[in-house]
Amino acid sequence: MSDTYDRLNALCFGGRLRPVVIRLEPWILSIDTPGLRLAGAWDSDGWSIAIDRALLDHPRLLVGALLHEMVHQACHQAAGVGGHGPFFVAAAALAGGPLDIPGPTPATASTWPYPIPRQLLKEI
Rank of each mutant, 00 (worst) to 15 (best):
M1G: 12
T4L: 05
Y5P: 00
R7S: 15
L8C: 15
F13W: 08
F13A: 14
F13N: 04
G15K: 04
G15E: 06
R16Q: 13
L17G: 00
V21F: 12
V21N: 11
V21C: 04
L24I: 09
E25T: 10
E25V: 08
W27Q: 11
S30K: 12
D32H: 06
T33R: 13
T33E: 11
T33A: 06
P34N: 12
L36F: 15
L36T: 13
R37I: 11
L38S: 00
G40N: 03
A41Q: 10
W42T: 06
D43V: 14
S44A: 09
D45P: 13
G46V: 14
G46D: 13
I51A: 01
D52G: 10
D52S: 04
A54N: 08
L55F: 05
L55A: 02
D57H: 05
P59Y: 03
L62F: 05
G64M: 03
G64T: 02
L66W: 02
L67I: 09
H68Q: 09
H68G: 02
H68P: 02
H68W: 11
E69Q: 15
M70W: 00
M70R: 00
M70P: 01
V71D: 00
V71S: 00
V71Q: 00
H72V: 11
Q73D: 05
A74E: 01
A74K: 01
H76I: 08
Q77W: 06
A78R: 12
A78S: 14
A79G: 06
G80M: 12
V81G: 03
V81P: 02
G82P: 09
G82I: 06
G83D: 10
H84F: 08
H84L: 13
F87M: 12
F87S: 04
V89P: 02
A90Y: 09
A91F: 04
A93W: 07
A95K: 00
G97D: 09
G97A: 13
P98I: 07
P98H: 07
P98N: 10
P98Y: 05
P98S: 05
I101V: 13
I101C: 07
P102R: 10
G103R: 02
P104C: 12
P104K: 02
T105H: 09
P106T: 14
S110A: 12
S110D: 15
T111D: 09
P113F: 02
Y114W: 15
Y114C: 02
R118W: 12
Q119A: 14
L120S: 03
L120A: 07
K122F: 07
K122D: 14
E123T: 07
I124T: 15
